[in-house]
Write a protein that binds this DNA or RNA. Structure first.
Lengths: 155, 155
DNA sequence: CACAACTGTATTGCGCACAACTTAATCGCG
DNA sequence: CGCGATTAAGTTGTGCGCAATACAGTTGTG
């Protein structure tokens, strides 16, 4: 942690934001493994289910991807696993055969009740108040917005 | 985003901290791809190099793993790629043949100067002040500490 | 010294992420 | 209508993360 005397002190691991961010995501994901045990879901699969539970309509792969910022290379195999698990259906849109519509099965819908306590349990594991969590959420959301424009703009 | 009328409003994607955290990490990683282009490093490889640049001594795989919270299943192939790239050496510790000591080559050491502007460039992409970044860093560090104890304690 | 317990690293297998590419369907424009 | 451009999803290949396992080397104990 002693950064004095280094040629490039800004490169110290503990001086940067990126590492705690990276570590926090992995720690949260690891906690979800425990919390989702019994549902058979991975954390990315859980996120997909969250989006589907929010939606009244079947969603295309692209719209799921826009919501979660994931592309078809990630979603297609993930959705196939959810289909194999019997939680979702994948059907070509009759009105546009390029699109695949993803909808919940009865089992998929039923799973929502089983995970309804997960957010609160995770919150308890994080050791911060609800207000702190919401403030952090907003800061990170802003960060994502900036980074998205930054990377496309500055190349 | 309208959460009213849902049976489980706490499951709304936008109500939770986990998703912005996950999205922010991926956005940062994506930005690093651009910033590290020319070094040949991936973001996790860059983190390993940060730790090695900080150290005067060769480090074992385990001590690298403790610093970065990564295990040998992740580090071994990553270090082999860094070795192939000519940036590090991997040698068994003569004093304890179980251990593999990782040290920088001349090329590896030289790379530090090439990335010395990366932290500042990333900071500029995030659209937050240095103080905000440091506050965020500290909050996330605390989060990680809590989650680590939570997952081992509550199983 | 013998040997069980432990430690450090490597290997295997699975599931993301994502870039790059392919294929099929649709759209737009003359 | 014909046909090039665009769009949507799927495929391929690379590199993490990490649990589970294997295994060689080391340590502790009698």
């Amino acid at each position: 942690m002693d950064v004095s005397g280094r040629t490039y002190p800004q490169l110290a691991l503990d001086a940067q934001l990126c590492f705690p961010l990276y570590a926090a995501t992995r720690a949260v994901t690891k906690r979800y493994v425990t919390l989702l045990k019994g549902t058979g879901l991975t954390y990315p699969q859980y996120l997909v289910m969250l989006v589907l539970w929010e939606s009244d309509e079947p969603l295309s792969v692209t719209s799921l991807g826009q919501r979660l910022r994931l592309d078809s290379g990630t979603l297609t195999p993930l959705l196939k696993r959810l289909e194999t698990a019997g939680l979702v259906r994948r059907e070509r849109d009759p009105g546009d055969e390029r699109r695949v519509l993803v909808s919940l099965t009865e089992d998929g819908r039923d799973l929502e009740e089983q995970v309804s306590d997960v957010p609160q349990e995770l919150g308890a594991s994080m050791g911060i108040t609800r207000d702190e969590a919401l403030a952090l959420r907003d800061q990170l959301t802003e960060l994502v917005d900036h980074l998205d424009t930054a990377d496309s703009a500055r190349g």
